[in-house]
Design a protein around this nucleic acid. Structure first.
Lengths: 145, 145
DNA sequence: CCTAAAATGAAAACCGTTGTCAAAACTGGC
DNA sequence: GCCAGTTTTGACAACGGTTTTCATTTTAGG
């Protein structure tokens, strides 16, 4: 992943970009895959940052609201976040082992979802599409180890 | 939805079908959409059933493990369950207002997910695809009221 | 019946997350 | 620089869905 691309730095999107929020975003963007609030908190503390868990939670949800990071829910109900390279609509191909994530577009999926909904009289459609798999690296490690 | 179709009644799938489990499944199958454990519990108690919340949780997860009901997570992290008419792989078109659910097949989606994964060297792919919208009935009510 | 194994349920524990509230850090005037 | 007003921060408590614990009840076989 790219990692250093940031969005509207210095102005924020609705809310001011405080130092803590910037630090949270920066930490998140150094990560390849989706990370939980507690992961980010632990990582920041390990790096010597002075920040509270509550603030990390708040920063992440602010960033999510403003569209600067993507949110997902894991199977066990945990919220995980990721600083995606693109602000436009996309889906994710996620390694279930290491969390490595590839952003994928799927225009045919958008069309499919729309038509399925219309077919049944539904309107104002939205959808969630995530693909999980084992990435090449993890598969190699698994077969070698 | 059909509602009365049941699966392997009287034998279970891995675990015995106890009276409570049967009651939970029966209650769930009387519902159109996805329902939470607490919904089912409340409904059963309202119907006069003598059952504990813990048992409802356990019954639902047993039924889910054995593939007799489908599980989803709502945006706020709640687990919701549904007795689907088909045991084979499918997706859901869910009314975000009333929960009414239509089961949809999407062979092109399966192919798409598979090829996207392969393209990036991923293996053992799985995916989650859910479509949300406002059903015709709810849209009508909203515009009338 | 009688016993062993499984299921049940009330209450406690869990755990991610959100609310509370006082202290700290910004903000725009003076 | 200093002040009043507002926002942010963070330790801690509370919340809510879910799971665990454990004593009791039910079920299945002899």
């Amino acid at each position: 992943m790219s990692g250093t691309r940031v969005y509207g730095i210095g102005r924020g999107e609705g809310r001011p970009m405080t130092s803590r929020r910037a630090a949270v975003r920066e930490t998140l963007s150094r990560n390849d895959g989706f990370r939980s609030a507690q992961d980010i908190y632990a990582q920041m503390r390990a790096d010597g940052a002075k920040i509270g868990l509550t603030t990390v939670y708040r920063a992440l949800q602010t960033l999510a609201e403003s569209g600067q990071v993507d949110v997902l829910r894991t199977d066990d109900g945990e919220c995980v976040y990721r600083a995606c390279a693109t602000g436009s609509h996309h889906h994710h191909l996620v390694c279930r082992n290491c969390g490595r994530t590839v952003e994928v577009a799927g225009p045919e999926i958008e069309r499919w979802a729309e038509s399925v909904g219309a077919e049944h009289g539904f309107t104002a459609m939205t959808h969630t599409v995530e693909i999980f798999g084992t990435c090449a690296t993890c598969a190699a490690v698994a077969s070698a180890g």
